[in-house]
């Protein structure tokens, strides 16, 4: 069973690699992008990692990631020109099928959960299978052919851009931190200040640190690997806390930090500009009471659900 799952997952990763290849080809063809060669190379390297990385030595894979980082560092990666969607097509389809347009999305989420819960294939295979089934349904509903699928795939991958690949790189950073013993050192530093072993104190420390680090960095994903390794595991999970509760509520505690920081520009600063608000911190002020209450509630929830 495990071999089968791994082979199916490998096929999914190769498919994602082909998506990246499409993004590479279309980036190269985008004459309007001054960094089109760099952007194309950026996607090609990800295509190589996902299609063939399995069989390459890991040192080579690591080298490819370093090249990707250099391309990004020297501003050689840009989204470029992405064709606007035709409003008429949208109106025509909505008129014809109405709210059935939501069906593929609902199918995607429900099918993925059903496969995860009721079969032995697990969550990851569920996501892939659900994605393929919903794509077929979406194609039939909207009468789209393979060319449209190609067009929309490369369009979506390119517009999601490097932000889409960031979560995986942050998870990779977590691996490097673990290999370097960052978790133990952080835990040691903090246990010098706070006693280890008190459940409530550990939970509060972890949730508040998640919110605080997220607020400083403006990104809960980046905080998650660092704080969970350094505080979540030694102070809560190692004391008998359920990893699943700690992980789920730890991330949402981080989101409370996102709601409180101007660092999360996309969420808290962009609307100020979009709506020409007078108060630069107007969005954060409206979020403050809810963010603080939810942080407190999640500390209490984690304390009771994890132990």
């Amino acid at each position: 069973m495990d071999t089968l799952i791994n082979n199916v997952l490998l096929a999914f990763y190769i498919l994602i690699g082909l998506f990246f290849l499409a993004a590479a080809i279309e980036s190269w063809r985008d004459q309007a992008n001054p960094a089109r060669w760099g952007t194309g190379l950026f996607w090609l390297l990800f295509a190589i990692l996902f299609c063939t990385g399995q069989w390459l030595p890991n040192a080579i894979n690591g080298g490819l990631i370093v090249i990707i980082a250099l391309l990004s560092l020297f501003k050689q990666v840009r989204v470029g020109h992405i064709k606007e969607l035709d409003e008429k097509v949208a109106q025509k389809t909505v008129k014809r099928i109405g709210n059935w347009i939501f069906l593929p999305s609902i199918l995607l989420a429900v099918l993925a959960l059903v496969i995860a819960q009721f079969t032995n294939f697990g969550g990851q295979v569920g996501i892939g299978v659900a994605a393929i089934v919903s794509l077929v349904v979406a194609q039939i509903l909207t009468r789209s052919n393979a060319k449209v699928v190609y067009e929309d795939t490369q369009r979506m991958v390119r517009s999601v851009g490097s932000a889409g690949i960031l979560p995986q790189l942050l998870a990779t950073l977590g691996v490097v931190f673990t290999a370097s013993g960052v978790g133990q050192v952080t835990a040691k530093a903090i246990s010098g200040l706070f006693p280890i072993g008190n459940h409530l104190l550990g939970v509060a420390l972890y949730c508040i640190a998640m919110a605080l680090f997220t607020a400083i960095m403006g990104n809960a994903f980046a905080a998650f690997a660092v704080i969970t390794a350094g505080i979540g595991i030694p102070f809560v999970v190692a004391q008998g806390g359920s990893p699943i509760v700690v992980a789920a509520l730890g991330m949402t505690s981080g989101y409370c930090g996102t709601l409180l920081t101007p660092m999360a520009a996309n969420f808290n600063t962009l609307p100020v500009a979009l709506m020409e608000m007078k108060d630069q911190l107007g969005v954060i002020k409206q979020q403050f009471p809810i963010a603080i209450s939810m942080l407190l509630i999640q500390i209490i929830l984690m304390y009771f659900l994890a132990f």
């Binding site: 990692l49 990385g53 690591g62």
Partner: peptide, 9 residues
């Protein structure tokens, strides 16, 4: 590089 590549994969 090996840790980075393996971590990514």
């Amino acid at each position: 590089l090996t840790i980075l590549g393996k971590g990514f994969m």
